[in-house]
Amino acid sequence: MFDLNTSSETTVGTHDAAIRCVEYCPEVNLVITGSWDTNVKLWDPRGPREAGSFQQPNKVYTIGLCGERVVVGTANRKVMVWDLRNMGFAQQKRESSLKFQTRCIRCFPNKQGYVVSSIEGRVAVEYLDPSPEVQKKKYAFKCHRLKEDGIEKIFPVNAISFHNGYNTFATGGSDGFVNIWDGFNKKRLCQFHRYPTSISSLSFSNDGNMLAISCSYLYEQEIKPIPENCIFIRKVTDQETKPK
């Protein structure tokens, strides 16, 4: 933990393996870390201590925050939904509806559900409400695929970021493309021009006027020379992000 006021740094605690994701939940004021040691740990930023450690079914690959709920995606396509206010048990234990390794999970800002992406150019929109009527609405779609010389190249979908205002989301794939989707209407809103290499991370600004796009070769396949890493900050318009 790094204190900006005193420029001092404290080690709050450790995981037994690399930490894959860090999130901060303002609702309950906790920092959440997920690690390849199969644990999710909670950290109280006020005091230098661990607020809890929770075993997950497998290595944690991604964490999405949904208000007080945490959606944890692990290896072997498990998805766990935890409630930060009651971490006694996992609220839901699911398996990703995608057939391939989970790459990224992000939640709708309206807290209705989440979006999972897999390495196999596919994205699923899922709902947290377990009732069958709501569950019926879930679906998955293909994206980030390129047809080259008659061979369809299927790329991992590495990054998802939601637009806070419109509940639309951007996905970034190893194909170097960024798409913006309207998950409720099952529409693609736009596709940006191709970026030099894999999109490794995406983030909308709080007000949704900007999209930060990080572009970094992820060793999916042999490429030489290794492309430069870069970040693009892109202003996005309503036309690109607002449901039509």
Binding site: Y195, S200, S203, F204, S205, D207, N209, C230, I233
Partner: peptide, 26 residues
């Protein structure tokens, strides 16, 4: 509008960029 590169994000580790939630980016 792109391309506007911030050069060389550390290529040695996984980096995730996030906008700071508490501030309005715009």
């Amino acid at each position: 509008r792109p391309p506007m590169g911030i050069p060389q994000v550390n290529e040695y580790r996984n980096i995730t960029i996030r906008f700071h939630r508490a501030y309005d980016f715009y």
